[in-house]
Design a protein around this nucleic acid. Sequence first.
DNA 1: AATGTATCCAACCGCATGTCA
DNA 2: GTGACATGCGGTTGGATACAT
Length: 278
Amino acid sequence: MGRSPCCEKAHMNKGAWTKEEDQLLVDYIRKHGEGCWRSLPRAAGLQRCGKSCRLRWMNYLRPDLKRGNFTEEEDELIIKLHSLLGNKWSLIAGRLPGRTDNEIKNYWNTHIKRKLLSRGIDPNTHRLINESTVSPSSLQNDIVNESLHLDFTGPDQERLVKAEPVVQKEGNNNNNNNNNNNNCTSSGTTSDKDFQNEDDWVLNLELSVGPAATTYRYESTRKTSLDSAESNRRWGSELYGGRSDAVCLCCRIGLFRNESCRNCRISDVRTIRESRIL
DNA sequence: AATGTATCCAACCGCATGTCA
DNA sequence: GTGACATGCGGTTGGATACAT
């Protein structure tokens, strides 16, 4: 027995969205907030599948999306994050405010792959092409280290090194206070509940790499967000054994210093996030 | 100007996962 | 424990546009 389709597709529009459809979706979400994508199309008067609505909103209509070309800084950050996370586009997008996983994925496939290849670097392995084995003294290794070196020091280092490279599939991310109206549930985001158990530390590391900048929680029927600075504090605080001066991943990787990192500069993203909902 | 080719990116699809009854 | 359902993710597709011939 297969799963039933997510929606009745017979009478659904497909393909490019019209301005009218966009407007209906934006109006509805402004009024009611995100969530419950299955019932949203009908409620909003759209002849679209819920998944399609979600995608359109997440990748195109969200007001906090950054438009325009990727900067050199973003390029380098994507490369470094990809060397750490692989094709975990949503996690990578979580560290690039205003960019979507789809956008980064497309950009990777159309630009960065080519860029790396032109540098003689295999975009999949982040190693020099023509060198199949790792030599600790080689340039190749320098590149790998340059990409992967995280400088994790202190008591947590050992646990971190032992962590499996599983990014998302484990853990107790049952954080959402579900708004059970319309039998809607939500899933997948990380909250402070995830940080309550010290034994979950490694899991929390995995979960926190991505969504720091856009970590939502449901409160009653309205969605709010953790501001990125707070998310970074929580993430870093757990990561570095409760130190309060923890920094975000960008800084940790060494791409930025605190003063030049966008994530660290944003002190209160909540204002931005909420204003787009209201 | 017409045609062919390359590139970009929005959207789709299938599957994995989490939640709930 | 199990199945149905909702959502999210990553790979892929195909139409639009840019560029080359």
